[in-house]
């Protein structure tokens, strides 16, 4: 389970953010909620990156797993910021 969390962590954060945004827009439209959720997800991505950076990896698979996880977290960070922009700029 830990390996899957490392590999998919960033994308899980993105999923929470995206579907959170959709539910807010559909059922309770509020810019404040959107911004709060975006900040929470950015913090989650940053925490994930810090955790993965600090993780000791001596073997090939563990290194590979960490590098995919970190790239996923970076991609997620960009996507969360990108998708928060329409509301933040409005």
């Amino acid at each position: 389970m830990k390996s899957w969390l490392i590999l998919l962590g960033g994308f899980i954060v993105w999923t929470v953010h995206f579907f959170g945004l959709y539910l807010i827009a559909e059922f309770a439209p509020s810019a404040t909620l959107v911004i709060a959720l975006t900040i929470l997800c950015i913090i989650a991505d940053l925490w994930l990156l810090r955790w993965l950076r600090a993780m000791a990896c001596s073997e090939a698979f563990a290194q590979w797993r960490r590098s995919v996880g970190m790239a996923g977290a970076v991609l997620s960070l960009l996507a969360v910021l990108w998708q928060g922009l329409p509301v933040m700029l409005a």
Binding site: A79, W82, V87
Partner: peptide
């Protein structure tokens, strides 16, 4: 409009 914005952003992403 809010929904449209999110989906447009995701579609580009």
């Amino acid at each position: 409009p809010m929904t449209t914005g999110f989906f447009s952003a995701a579609s580009m992403a």
